[in-house]
Design a protein around this nucleic acid. Sequence first.
DNA 1: TGTAATATGTTTAAAGTTCTAACAAAAGAA
DNA 2: TTCTTTTGTTAGAACTTTAAACATATTACA
Lengths: 408, 408
Amino acid sequence: MRRINPKDFKLAKRGTSRGINKQIALTLIGTHQPVSRADLSRLMETNRANVTFLVNELLEEKLIREGDAGSQRVRGRKPTHLYLNSHQGIAVALDIRATRIYMMVTDSIGRQIGQVVSFPTFREPDRFIASLGENVRHFVKDLAENAAIVGIGVVVPGLLDRANGTVLNSPTLGWKNVKLLEPLEREFPGIAIHLENSGKACALSQLWKTHDDGIAHNDIVFVSVSDGVGVGVVINGEVVRGRHNTAGEFGHIPISVDGPRCACGASGCWEAYISNIATLTRYFGREAGSSRPQSLDVANFTVEDLIIRARGNDSKALTALNSTARYLGLGLASIINAIDPMQIYIGGEITEAWDLIEPHVREAIRERTLTADLGRVAVTIVPASEYPRLRGAAALVTAPAFAAPKVA
Amino acid sequence: MRRINPKDFKLAKRGTSRGINKQIALTLIGTHQPVSRADLSRLMETNRANVTFLVNELLEEKLIREGDAGSQRVRGRKPTHLYLNSHQGIAVALDIRATRIYMMVTDSIGRQIGQVVSFPTFREPDRFIASLGENVRHFVKDLAENAAIVGIGVVVPGLLDRANGTVLNSPTLGWKNVKLLEPLEREFPGIAIHLENSGKACALSQLWKTHDDGIAHNDIVFVSVSDGVGVGVVINGEVVRGRHNTAGEFGHIPISVDGPRCACGASGCWEAYISNIATLTRYFGREAGSSRPQSLDVANFTVEDLIIRARGNDSKALTALNSTARYLGLGLASIINAIDPMQIYIGGEITEAWDLIEPHVREAIRERTLTADLGRVAVTIVPASEYPRLRGAAALVTAPAFAAPKVA
DNA sequence: TGTAATATGTTTAAAGTTCTAACAAAAGAA
DNA sequence: TTCTTTTGTTAGAACTTTAAACATATTACA
């Protein structure tokens, strides 16, 4: 039961019904392809005539294509298979990280083309743009020859003002109030640029993924554990943004308000307990709350290294991981109690130790969730090899064609 | 950008456009009444002809009515004023509390009729239903004579299974897995029964309230502080329910995981720091974490009494309140970081001390919110005299007529 | 007082939907 | 070859929004 916003509604025009049904048909072709017009009419519970009209228009718009005739089990005319058209130009996905920028090229329906490449990040805004422009053009030529870029999705670790296209604050990059949209549009004239926060991009990557089970994951949470903790929340198939595009910052709910100092200025944030730096600090023997994590002595030792040691016989490493696992679970329980999602996805380096830590995570979840049902929520890891941030960035470009029209 | 759920979509039929536009017109009549057809055509940015058709149908359905001709500022024909029709039967709102049940009767657009009445709560389910049935019939006759009841909204403190119409767990009432919908439907044959959790009902009450400023509050959080802490979250004009109707339980996010024991079984929950019992326990000198709040010696001393003492010269009372205020703010900050709402509403006995505690609440909010914008979010108290639970219960009955149709 | 001007609300017809029913096309079964 | 079945299309009915003309009602002003 949704209330219509009297200051922001969308009237149904002559073409609204068709618009809705076309998007539904397109979505179903995406999830069921190859699929015939007759199949669609059954899936949509409408008549074949209507489907013919809708499909013809989608064909004209080149959003779908006809394939070979399918084989019919019993007798009757063979169906014409319909597929999503993946040749509508390419999307460029960029993941801006502290030291390197990662880049993926996809076709118009978000399927990866070639390999992920990377190039260095320059912190100075002008140089950042110039280097990025040069590299993107170079690698696109490499990967996709003459294909036209229809859009560029850019994922940034930090808070974004999407209305003005600026990075409000990114501790990772050391950026505050850096304009990004406008210079990028100047660098790539005529190409649509989309900016997104990394936590929200990860959530998008799972929302728009075509899952094997065919079930849509329309109420999900993605928790990305890395230098910081990024969270993206999807409710009703839509990323929750809030009034200032700041929603989803579960990384800073407290575990204990008197706990270790966090990069955000407060203390005892979840992030301060489970970020990679927190885990490493724990391993190097400091009490979690006694020092600022930044001042780590062993600069090049990573969580991946820690996990390798834990798999060896380094009990101290295992203890550090298990401790993080417990706090991870405690925080997840808060998210579960607050959102009650269908599924939780976890990304970040620590997922490589999932077989070691999962029991501790689950136990902590059970400990703090309100009901047994909530304690059993599915928790799935997303390995780095799936590039959730990059796939989310690509979705920024490729997904709008499939999105539900805004109505009422 | 919402993804269409391929397992749960709604096709646009012949009448879908009209359905959408009728609900928009109805909503606008509600927020702008009295309003003419010509006004509507301007508000909706469509032609007067279309409005005539829509309005005529709404008139036939008796959802609206024509009033006197309005006075025209300049020349031209006088407009015909349109109003919502409030004579479509009555709604009964019931708020089930530990010892008494409160009841309000409203007209078909949710406006209170007569006074709020109350009668005792029987915990034993059969007797509960029988007594409730008798009292409701008695008081309805008293308040609204022969009016037909179109629906009954029932608000319960605790977790509900709305699919099966049962109370899963209500510590306040001492109920576990108690069937409620079916026996109520038997008790009131032919009358629609709606069950709702108290936190969500409070959120509904604000969502469906016609605010003076005319701004719709489509992203809000209602925090109700009482024996427990109930929270209702509204995103995109819709209450967030989650997979098991359990979403919104921010009452059990931790302040400190090693904090005082909570009624839910975990420890350090927000609720354990700010519930009325926690505040009283603090006043009576126990350390917040050292004992179970249930075993309170001074049984009949309430938070209201505490506030009166704080307004006198009882510095211990003031200290207890201020301490609760600080924890209230710390928890609110987590909600703000997570949801980034337009507005937060606070209900419960403690709001009577708002002038005393607001500065402490605000300071704690600022301390833990991620950005300055988030720290400035509007926090409004809803006094008990506005009966948010009862108004939410009434909205369960009266709001569906105004709700947006489910589409795409 | 009468006429022009102007705003409201309705009617009519056109353009664009879904939907029903009939029809053509294509393939296997008998 | 003929029948049966399935797919896909076409024609027209029913129902939309929308543009334009029209009727109605009121004020302004000569």
